[in-house]
């Protein structure tokens, strides 16, 4: 049974909260601190960009809050529940992940032997929906993301942008509290990259799902509500600069 978030916190709308996360790999002479005392609070429906150079610890942070790679110390709250207390899991992580988190990756990471619709459907089925209900939900999501006509195509028959849309649909399948995206536009051209970023904003604002996106792509930063930067394992919130309007 997981512990609820402290009551004095005005957190009714907090989707995810990371408190002082530290991740240390190795020990002694080989010890590497990948993430140091990183904290972040993301509200429901908020779209957050996590910036930083390669090796700065962005993916370590993302996998920690994604309950894939537990932190060495620190606390993670999701959906008002304390889920990780240091490396100790307070619930069944795989089951919790399935219900509350959605993932989108650099490459689309679709299951190659399932068609686009089935890639979304399987996520719904894993969460307990019947095959029929799952199929209906999958088609709804693909329709919502404008790719319903490709539901019968295998991933190898889709373009990079289409694959990412399917991946987003899969991430949304179980109405998660948070979507975690690790450089989702890295394999896309700038036009399609922006489309995907705008898709996250649409999803967040229309469905109330929080989105944390690790990105190098500074061209689309205007779509994010909040910016964070990771450098040498330290996480800091950045002030969002107003867009320069070209005339």
């Amino acid at each position: 049974m997981s512990t609820p978030m402290p009551a004095d916190d005005p957190s009714a709308k907090i989707a995810i909260k990371a408190e002082s996360l530290t991740k240390i790999y190795g020990a002694g002479n080989t010890e590497v601190v990948a993430m140091r005392d990183a904290s972040m609070t993301v509200m429901a429906g908020e779209v957050v960009a996590l910036l930083g150079p390669s090796g700065s610890g962005k993916s370590t942070f993302l996998t920690a809050v994604g309950l894939i790679n537990p932190p060495t110390s620190g606390k993670i709250y999701i959906a008002n529940q304390l889920i990780m207390d240091g490396p100790k899991a307070l619930t069944n992580l795989r089951s919790f992940r399935r219900k509350h988190l959605g993932f989108v990756f650099q490459k689309s990471n679709l299951i190659p032997f399932l068609k686009a619709g089935e890639n979304v459907q399987i996520a719904c089925e894993l969460n307990g929906l019947s095959s029929r209900q799952a199929r209906i939900r999958a088609l709804e999501l693909l329709d919502y993301l404008g790719i319903k006509d490709r539901s019968q195509s295998y991933p190898s028959m889709l373009s990079g942008g289409q694959q990412q849309r399917v991946a987003v649909a899969r991430a949304l399948a179980n109405r998660p509290s948070v979507i975690l995206a690790d450089e989702p536009t890295a394999a896309l051209d700038s036009f399609r990259g922006r489309q995907v970023m705008e898709l996250f904003t649409k999803v967040a604002h229309e469905q109330g799902t929080s989105v944390i996106v690790v990105t190098h792509d500074h061209r689309s930063l205007d779509v994010f509500d909040t910016l964070y930067e990771m450098e040498d394992g330290k996480l800091t919130q950045k002030t969002k600069e107003p867009l320069a309007v070209a005339h």
Binding site: R94, S95, R97, R98, L126, N127
Partner: peptide
């Protein structure tokens, strides 16, 4: 990937 999206 199936594990990641919660497959038992």
């Amino acid at each position: 990937l199936l594990k990641l999206i919660g497959a038992s």
